[in-house]
Amino acid sequence: MSNSSTTVDIRQTPQGRLGMWILIAGELIIFGGLIACYLLNRIRYPEWGMEAVHTSTFFGALNTAVLLLSSFTIVLAHTAANNMKPRKAQMYMMLTIIGGLLFLVNKSIEYSREISEGLTFSSPKLVASGKEVGSLFWSFYYIMTGLHALHVVVGMTVIFIIMLQIRKGNNLHRVELAGMYWHMVDLIWIFLFPLLYIAK
């Protein structure tokens, strides 16, 4: 690649991209703060490892693969938009939305299984068995994955709106901006996956 970061002038950065980077930096603080608090508590309470055993590594890995594939389809939508092919871009955006839906379906299956086992916020089951510290794990789990799922819904909505906007070939640059948001959702999950599903 001929372009490196140092050869590009900040004044050439489109305003939309600049705005997206500022938004992403803000989101990093929100999720990063949550993750840092989780890690600090995890170090303090090693018994959280016993709670993490109940999370499904299969569903976590499946959702990671789904998000990686949907990141790939949205970046293909961006390439198609650059090549002035709105129809093709719309098709890839639809595939991305389907990826998001699949992620949410998997997450709901996971949630329903965990809730039915009594693993909830301040789980009465854990409190009754003297594992109050363990119930805090589930509070973090639901807040982090729930906030992430909310971002998935927002990302799907934004992609859908832009998909409608570009049908006449206008505002094609917005495809990349929606894609940046979607990639951010993806990379947050990439870090949540080992944190909640693998480190047991």
Binding site: T6, Q12, T13, L187
Partner: peptide, 16 residues
């Protein structure tokens, strides 16, 4: 992801 899909590798140093 951040370097390739989000194209950070092509961004000016101030974005980094």
């Amino acid at each position: 992801v951040i370097r390739n899909f989000m194209h950070l590798r092509y961004e000016p140093i101030l974005i980094w």
